[in-house]
Design a protein around this nucleic acid. Structure first.
Lengths: 123, 123
DNA sequence: CAGCATCCTGCGTGATACTG
DNA sequence: CAGTATCACGCAGGATGCTG
C-alpha cells in the first residue's frame, strides 16, 4: 500500500486489539516471551510472579491463551516431540512487533497505576 | 513513593492496565474523547461507528464503563444540571496521558490486523 | 512435562422497560 | 437527554482429575 493514510477514522483496530489480547494472561505471556523462548511450565511459573494469593493458573486457561496467541500469529509453538514432552513457545515477528506496545502499556501503568516498577531504561 | 519497594519488574502494571480497560468500549471512549468533551449520546453514537450489525449499545453498559473510567481517574464527568439533562465527559490529565498508548495500540493494530484504518467503505 | 476433559461459577454484555 | 432497574445468557476463568 502506497502512502500512509493517517486517518483516524474508526476504532476498528482497537477493537481487534482488544479481541486478540482478551484474557488475563495474553499480554503477560507475550511480554515474558520477549526475552526468548520459554517452555510451557516456565511461562506458567513466570505468570505467577506478581500474583499473590490468586492460586494457580488452570492449565486449561493457559493452554487456551497460548493457542489463541498462536492462532493470531503472535507466538509460535515448537513441539520437540520427545518424552517427557518439551514444548517451546516463542514470539513471531508479529509478536515481537507487539512488544513495544506492551512496553508502552507497562510504562504508562507504572507511571499512573502505582508505579512500583523500575523504569526499564535511563534517558 | 517513600518506601523503597522496588519490586522487580513484574507484569503488575500490565494486569492493572487490563483491569482498567476491561470492557469493550473503554479504550474507544478514551480515544473518542481525545478530541474534546463529548456528551453521553455523542459517545454512544461515536461508539457505533465501525460496528456493523452488532445492534445498539445498552445504556447500562455504557453507563458502567463511563463510571468505571471516571473512578479510575481517566475521565471526568461534568453534569450541567439542566433540563433536558446535559452531561459532558472529558479526559483528565491521566486520561490524556493514556491517549498515546491507545495510539500505539491503534497503530500496531492497523499495521498488523488488517490495516484498514480508513473507512470500510469506498474500498 | 504438557496438556485435555469435565464441571461449576461469576460477571461482562445485551435487551427491555421505566424515570427525572 | 441521561441515565437506572431488572432479567437473561454466554463465556472467561478456576478447580480437579486423567493421559501419553
Amino acid at each position: 500500500m502506497p502512502n500512509a493514510r493517517t486517518k483516524p477514522a474508526c476504532g476498528c483496530p482497537v477493537a481487534a486489539f482488544q479481541k486478540i489480547i482478551s484474557g488475563k494472561y495474553k499480554l503477560r505471556i507475550v511480554w515474558d516471551l520477549k526475552d526468548g523462548p520459554l517452555r510451557y511450565s516456565e511461562i506458567r511459573s513466570g505468570l505467577l510472579r506478581g500474583i499473590e494469593g490468586t492460586g494457580e493458573i488452570a492449565p486449561r486457561v493457559l493452554s487456551r491463551e497460548l493457542k489463541a496467541l498462536a492462532e493470531n500469529g503472535l507466538i509460535d509453538r515448537k513441539d520437540f516431540g520427545v518424552v517427557p514432552p518439551k514444548v517451546e513457545y516463542r514470539l513471531t515477528a508479529k509478536g515481537r512487533s507487539f512488544v513495544p506496545v506492551i512496553a508502552a502499556i507497562r510504562d504508562w501503568g507504572s507511571a499512573h497505576l502505582g508505579g512500583h516498577v523500575r523504569q526499564a531504561q535511563a534517558a
